[in-house]
Design a binder for these strands. Structure first.
Length: 204
DNA sequence: AGCAGGATGCGCT
DNA sequence: GCGCATCCTGCTT
């Protein structure tokens, strides 16, 4: 996976990332996952992108060089991770939604004790970030640098015929865009959930 | 097996 | 304040 490739359109990078391996080193040990589910987000013309309304402090990494890691915090307790791409024209990124743990499943299990099967350890974006031990401290790191604690490697390329696509999970805007891609048949692919406002009952 | 609801912090209107 | 690129538990079919 070259920097040239990472600097391309998020839609292309997303499919290219399937089958790649993400490896994280920490004092606790090493965990690696094979990516099986991703989503593309593309700046200015994508209402679901964090960059849709321009640059802020939170999304500033998405405006930086391709191949860096954009980490954000959601729902008060979870981190999600993206690979930055397409920096020449508009900001873009690929959300890493799910993977299969290939190295360090014991450490991964200790970080996600609720998982009932190994296939669920990294099934979902916050779970994926969780098993890799990624937090806001990792925001902005270069995934292509040998000095980085988290690095991206070429795995076994997934054949076109084994890639499926559909609308992004939990996104109400642009539901007609099939910008989520996943590896057909992987048990680790997360469940689809439609976007839209959840009903919140007023309490008495 | 499937869904509703709560937990929980922070960025943005 | 509101709502979020979510996860987990517990209760219903």
């Amino acid at each position: 996976m070259t920097s040239d490739e990472l600097a391309r359109d998020p839609l292309w990078v997303a499919r290219r990332l399937l089958g790649c391996e993400l490896r994280s080193s920490s004092p606790e040990g090493e965990v690696a996952v094979r990516l099986v589910e991703v989503e593309a987000y593309r700046g200015t013309d994508d209402p679901a992108s964090h960059c849709y309304r321009g640059r802020t402090e939170r999304n500033s990494v998405m405006f930086g060089p391709a191949g860096h890691l954009y980490v954000y915090f959601v729902y008060g307790m979870h981190f999600c991770i993206n690979v930055v791409c397409m920096t020449d024209s508009v900001p873009g990124a690929v959300l890493l939604r799910a993977g299969e743990v290939t190295t360090g499943s014991e450490l991964a299990r200790s970080r996600k004790p609720a998982a009932r099967k190994d296939a669920q350890l990294a099934s979902g974006p916050a779970r994926l970030a969780g098993v890799l031990g990624i937090t806001r401290e990792h925001n902005g790191i270069d995934l292509t640098s040998p000095d980085s604690p988290v690095r991206l490697y070429n795995g076994t390329q997934v054949a076109e015929d084994d890639i499926r696509s559909g609308p992004r999970v939990g996104v109400a805007a642009a539901m007609d865009l099939p910008w989520r891609s996943w590896v057909d048949g992987s048990e680790s692919v997360s469940a689809y959930r439609r976007g839209g406002r959840r009903r919140t009952r007023a309490r008495a």
